[in-house]
Design a protein around this nucleic acid. Structure first.
Lengths: 205, 205
DNA sequence: TACAAAACATACATCCATGTATGTATAATT
DNA sequence: AATTATACATACATGGATGTATGTTTTGTA
C-alpha cells in the first residue's frame, strides 16, 4: 500500500496498540498471533513490524500507556477532598488509584499483566510488576514515616510494617477483584475496605 | 518400548508431573512443549499422551497434587500452639499456610499458577484461582463471625470486612513475595505482618 | 500357555507463527 | 519537479508444536 501521512501513521500505531490490548486480553499474550493483532487493527503484519520490533516491543509499548506513578495520584486528588494529615493523603491517593483501575483501559491492561501473560523473550512481566511495586512502596514509605513522627500511626506499629501491610492489602484487593470483576465493585467495596484499613492503623481509630 | 509394570507406569506418571512442574516453571505453560516435558521425564510424547489427554489435563493434574483446604491447615496446627479464641485459630492456620508456601513444590506450583500461565483451551487458571479463593473465604467467614460474637473483633469492624481484609492482605503478601522471593522471607516477614494484622483487628490490640 | 490389553516409542500429517526480504505508491524534501 | 525515504503490503523460508495413527514388547490374566 501507499505511504500514509505522519498523522495517519501515528493513528495506525495507536490502533495497533488498541488491537494488541484486545487480542492479548482475549487470547492471552503467548497465544495471541501478530497476524490477528494486525488484522484486528485493519492492517497487515508488515505495518506491525514497521512500528514495533516484535511482540515484546508491542507488549512493552502497550504497558507504557497506562503507567501511573504515585506522585501523579497525589496530584490527582480533587480539591474538595482536603487531606487531613499524612495518613489521609495516602488514603486519598489510594482511592484515586482504585478509581483509575476501574476505567476500561487500565482494567484491561491490568488484567493482561496479572493473568494473561507469561514471561517471554526479553519481556519479564514478573520483573515489571516487581519494579512497579518497588516504585510504589518507595513512594509511600516516607509519608508513613512522616505520619509516624506526627503520631498519626497506631502505637506499636512501625512505618515499615504499615507500609508493607498497605501494599499487601491493596495488591490483594486488586488481584482478588481481577479474579472476578463482577463479584464486587472496586469503587464501593474497595474504598470501604481501604477506609477501614486506615481506621485500623490510625492512632485515633 | 515394552509394557511396564503397574508400579513403573505410576512412576512415569509422577515423573511426568515432576517434569511438567520444572518445564512449566522454566518456560511458562504456553511456551512449554510436550516434547520437552516428555524428554525431561526421560520418555517420549507417546507416554505423555498415554497418561494424559494433553497439556490441559497435565496442568490440571499437576495442580491437584498441591491443593490445601483450610480445614486441613487448622488440623495441621501443632499441639504446642494452642489457639486462644477464634481469631487466634485463624491466625495459626494462616501461619500454617505460610509455612507450606515456602516448601519447594508448593512454591514452584504457586509461581506457575500466579505468573507462568495464561488461560488456554479448557483450562482457566483465573477461574481456578477464583474458586480456591472463594473456598478459603467461605471457610474463614464463620470463624470471624464467631470471633465477632465473642467480642474478639475491634468495635466498628464487621466480620465480613475483617474476612475480606484478611484475604486481601494474605493474597497481596503472597503475590508480593512471588514477585521476588529473595526480597524477604515469608516465614519471618510474612508471619510478623500477619501477627501485626491480627493485633490491629482484635478488640484488645 | 496363550492372548488381549497395557505402556509406551515411532512415524506421519497438518497447521500456524515468526522473521525477513522484497515490492510499491505516495508524502515529504530539496 | 525530481528524488528519497516512508509506511506499509506481499511473498517466502523456516521451524516447531500438536494430534493421531501405528508399531512393539511385555505384563497380567483366563
Amino acid at each position: 500500500m501507499a505511504r500514509r501521512t505522519k498523522a495517519e501513521a501515528e493513528a495506525t500505531r495507536e490502533s495497533l496498540l488498541d488491537a494488541a490490548e484486545a487480542v492479548f486480553y482475549e487470547k492471552g499474550v503467548a497465544r495471541a498471533s501478530l497476524r490477528e493483532i494486525a488484522h484486528t487493527a485493519g492492517v497487515t503484519r508488515g505495518a506491525l513490524y514497521w512500528h514495533f520490533e516484535g511482540k515484546a516491543d508491542l507488549f512493552q509499548s502497550m504497558l507504557e500507556r497506562v503507567h501511573m506513578p504515585f506522585e501523579e495520584l497525589v496530584e490527582a486528588i480533587p480539591d474538595e477532598q482536603r487531606a487531613e494529615g499524612h495518613l489521609d493523603e495516602i488514603r486519598l491517593a489510594c482511592l484515586q488509584a482504585i478509581d483509575r483501575l476501574e476505567r476500561p483501559q487500565y482494567k484491561r491492561v491490568h488484567a493482561i499483566l496479572l493473568h494473561r501473560c507469561e514471561f517471554f523473550a526479553d519481556i519479564n512481566p514478573v520483573g515489571m510488576l516487581a519494579e512497579l511495586s518497588r516504585e510504589a512502596v518507595a513512594a509511600t514509605l516516607p509519608r508513613f514515616e512522616a505520619a509516624r513522627s506526627a503520631g498519626e500511626l497506631r502505637p506499636g506499629l512501625s512505618a515499615e510494617d504499615a507500609n508493607q501491610l498497605l501494599h499487601a492489602t491493596l495488591r490483594g484487593l486488586i488481584h482478588g477483584w481481577h479474579l472476578d470483576t463482577s463479584a464486587f465493585s472496586l469503587a464501593e467495596t474497595g474504598s470501604r475496605l481501604v477506609d477501614q484499613w486506615f481506621r485500623l492503623v490510625s492512632a485515633d481509630g
